[in-house]
Design a binder for these strands. Structure first.
Lengths: 231, 231
DNA sequence: TATATATCATGATATATATCATATATGATA
DNA sequence: TATCATATATGATATATATCATGATATATA
């Protein structure tokens, strides 16, 4: 999907009705004047761990991964963010530097709004401030919940989790193209690449899935959900 | 330690200089008039998963655990909170109900401030709002970081983590009384109770620790730190 | 105090998972 | 197209971890 035509004005932006609601026309204009929208192709890096945090980053379109590079040079994926997710988590309020890197896993449009402006709006528009915090709290809370969900399950439960995550949360369909490699799935749900592949094969043999490379079709949603729930 | 005499006025409260700074005398009085301070004895429950969220909860003194009860009735500890931590995480902004329970693991004083008041202050005092969010963001971010820290390590690294956590973060001393049972340590760092005990014994045999029941003394901090860093 | 109950401790065993080895397929690049 | 790198796949093996069993302490409760 080519997204290059999608760059637009804040006032028309679908997100006006979401994180940036409760703003006056004048305030939206202020954001619009200095905001920067940027297209990142699949695989391109949006920010690096250690970079100074200058902007509030908003994912308009596409899909990105947030990850840390461990001391042994292995990557650990913290979460996958979808449109409507702001992709700075909370570190933007509590840190000077990004505590993880962000990479596009599908062509993505990211909207950058200078942090100063956001902070100023929080100070001057209380209704916006409160609503804004409700929104970003939801994202952080869900990251915590997800980490617990994953780590209290074993391999089959974790794979079930990730399949249901993409089907329900990201693509709203039981058929989808897995946007990440098996290796990245492994980095996301804390297991070895071989075992990701193995369990997927198992699920295929069990007629839970149909797999052709990255294309996955969930054939038995109910049973997959049960595997997830049992852990 | 008996804390019953410690109940006090917001204006004198040590936390005036922390989360509640940037408030006028008039605003502090408003909080003080309706705030409720309550002493919870070790083992007493402060709130239950599913309870309606009515108050912002602030840990003045003591130590508490935040935990979820899984479907198999096992408890999973999300984090240990110490004084200065607000103990509602972010769910207080994004949920109507508590998504976990909180129990005192040491005698604790919790200060309850009606959520309405906090929300009103966020709306009307921008400087407070921004500072407040920086504080609570730090807590949520650190929960996320901790979960990753724990789950990317194996047993010895996890035990090293939790020992260093109590020594550095909670008690600021290499000698301390472990405030939770081995079973609770297991629930906190995702391992079996037997293995918690086993690894602690190993560390004792290796002269890393001296253990007498709950009393633990770290004898070789450097080596423990190395075990933590290696994972 | 006596009795029950939870916690701590350790060995033996079973299970889950990672690692190693090797093969095939897929996609990128010259 | 040929060559190389990377991703997928699967079996064999090693390792990490949980579970089971049993006993000893400690702690709570009648």
């Amino acid at each position: 999907m080519d997204l290059s035509h999608k760059i637009n004005n804040c006032k028309e932006c679908i997100y006006k009705s979401w994180a940036f609601k409760n703003l006056s026309d004048e305030e939206l204009t202020r954001i619009n004047e200095q905001k920067k929208e940027q297209l990142f192709r699949k695989g391109e890096n949006i920010c690096f761990e250690g970079d100074e945090i200058l902007s509030f980053m908003y994912l308009q379109n596409g899909l990105v991964k947030l990850f840390k590079t461990e001391s042994n040079n292995k990557e650990h994926i913290i979460s996958i963010a979808k449109p409507k997710d702001f992709i700075g988590l909370l570190s933007i309020f509590s840190n000077k530097k990004h505590i993880y890197s962000i990479t596009a896993i599908e062509d993505s449009i990211v909207c950058f709004v200078k942090l100063d402006i956001i902070k100023d709006l929080i100070k001057t528009n209380g209704i916006f401030a409160l609503d804004f915090f409700e929104k970003i709290s939801t994202v952080s809370d869900s990251v915590i919940k997800t980490r617990i969900d994953i780590n209290t399950r074993q391999l089959r439960g974790r794979i079930a989790y990730i399949l249901l995550f993409f089907a329900k949360h990201i693509y709203d369909s039981t058929t989808f193209n897995l946007p990440i490699s098996r290796k990245e799935v492994a980095e996301l749900i804390d297991m070895s690449t071989e075992n990701v592949i193995r369990v997927l094969s198992e699920f295929r043999k069990d007629k839970l899935l149909q797999i052709e490379g990255k294309n996955i079709e969930i054939k038995d949603l109910k049973r997959l959900e049960r595997i997830y729930e049992l852990g």
